[in-house]
Design a binder for these strands. Sequence first.
RNA 1: GCACCCGUAGCUCAAUGGAUAGAGCAUCGGUCUUCGGAACCGAGGGUUGCAGGUUCGAGUCCUGCCGGGUGUACCA
Length: 609
Amino acid sequence: MNFRSALRRAFRHALEGLAADGVAAIGPDDIAGLLEQVRETADATFGDYSGTMAMGLAKKAGRKPRDVAVEIIRRLEAAPGYAAVFEPPGDPVGPGFINVRVTDAALAAAVTRAVADQRLGVAAAEAPLTVVVDFSSPNVAKPMHVGHIRSTVIGDALARILRFRGHRVITDNHLGDWGTQFGMILWGWKHCRDEAAYALDPTAELGRLYRLVRRVADAKPEELAADPAAAALAAQHPDAAREVLAETARLHEGDPENRRLWEAFMPVCRGEIDRIYARLHVTFDHTLGESFFQPLLAGTVRDLEARGLARESRGAVGVFLRGDDGPPLLIRKADGAFLYATTDLATIRWRLEHWKPDRILYVVDHRQSEHFEQVFEAARRWGLPGLDDVELVHVAFGTVLGEDGRPFKTRAGDTVGLEALLDEGVERAAAVVGSGDEGRGGMSAADRRRVAETVGIGAIKYADLAQNRTTDYVFSFDKMLQLNGNTAAYMQYAVARVEGIFTKGGVDREALRRHCAGVLVSDPRERALALQLLRFGEALEDVEADSRPNVLTAWLYDLAGCYSTFYDALPVLKAEGPERDSRLALCDLTGRVLRQGLDLLGIGTVERM
RNA sequence: GCACCCGUAGCUCAAUGGAUAGAGCAUCGGUCUUCGGAACCGAGGGUUGCAGGUUCGAGUCCUGCCGGGUGUACCA
């Protein structure tokens, strides 16, 4: 049961009646926007939901806002299905707020049904869509670092949530496996490889070559001053930057040696990132990297040229989106190599042909917003069949900062490796887990390690997801591992507390779910908890609307708060009869919803911690 | 130069144009003979960077400033 959806249906009926009766000129296209003004109240003293459209409609109707509200209310009460679920709205409040309260009977019935429901009372989307989620997409030749975690964690959460909502979700890791970074490794391999080191630890050696050559090619004085090896190499090869690009171009042209090296290096690079995905419990339906689309690139450029969208300029080929003055979107370099814009355009076409999506989400750093604007615009002008009906969305996110407010780096100024970051999170979590009450410990060393892994990884993910993704965020182990506040550890603890009740009480949860006669919502704290539980589906709808997982974390945190208040004030195991069953059912549903919600965020839970 | 993003409590952050701008941390106070106290309840703390404007209503939209970040023709 989604109360908000039910109430919006009733409001739709009321507003259509208003239009039909000539009270206000409301067109069919206006209705959806007006219905968005039906939402939960900011303060429970106003009721559960409110409609605020009367104030806006007043001018259009040429009447006072309160009069319009009265007209809406009269039709709302008469709407089919309204009275079965909601109390009569009464008079408008203030300038024209229409406040609505769910009846206790309807609330109790709905929460009782949710207890017996596999989907916890969450209705699936009425119109399932095919959604491609393009996320993570690291450059395989570079070590994964803290910057990759946001795309990976946010993208995975969005995919899980959309899937639970009933959409057909296709996740794709669009690996950077064909760009200049490979030219760096190829050049490094040819000029300064350490074969013994490569035989021992290929990943580390490729990482060393990448870091070394990047410094040589960039030739920034301050970096070279700090790195004598790079400085010496740079002095020896003043033309390194150009040579690196040449290696990349040769790879793209099919040069046998570079191709052979690429094929040798790829499994090494893939193994490295797959290990991290396994640890994060992140999976993909497809991993179609840039190299996969490489055969399509020449045709993409030709097609865009043939349609008069792209043309040669200063030796390169670009799509001029803003006339001749603005910078073009380059799709082929003067040396013949293709760019990521080329790949992105070819990828859109390929996805359209093979997956027929309704929506494609690109979970990528906000710094690339201009790139995506241009790519989306170029794709529209390209006139690909079916593209007019596809939503292309850049799900942008901010930078990860250190506690000094600068981009997150080690003291030495290097980017922080993702694996080291996860290790530190788990290590710190182990210290926190170990500090708990020994009396109910009894956990083996293996259990404690498992719990620390779940809590540590969960803390890192949750901290990222809990923040509005559009802003930069400050990475702090101390804050994310706090046991209070909106953190993974607090949420996981809430789950463990619920588990504890059933263990201690020896309650058969399956039987409870089947036989619970009815949940009671007579106490305000029971009522508040029940209502919050039933808003799970609304929270997921809101996450989808703006691709914002922090809406779900905030809702889960509120749920945990409702539960704590309920549990602190009212006896559960010590209650008797129907009241005991009712409260146990609320506990059971809370535990399952918290667990499901965390699972949708890609975060694990434990039975004891 | 131009474009985009950001500026909210001491700190880290919330708040689809709605009602009294909310949490956590920190500070101070309270509850309870612990159904997991890793809890609960409460207080103080704000001219939402500044100045205008639109609106019944602005942290949110528009304009101009100030401050910070990012991007800006051949990296991704």
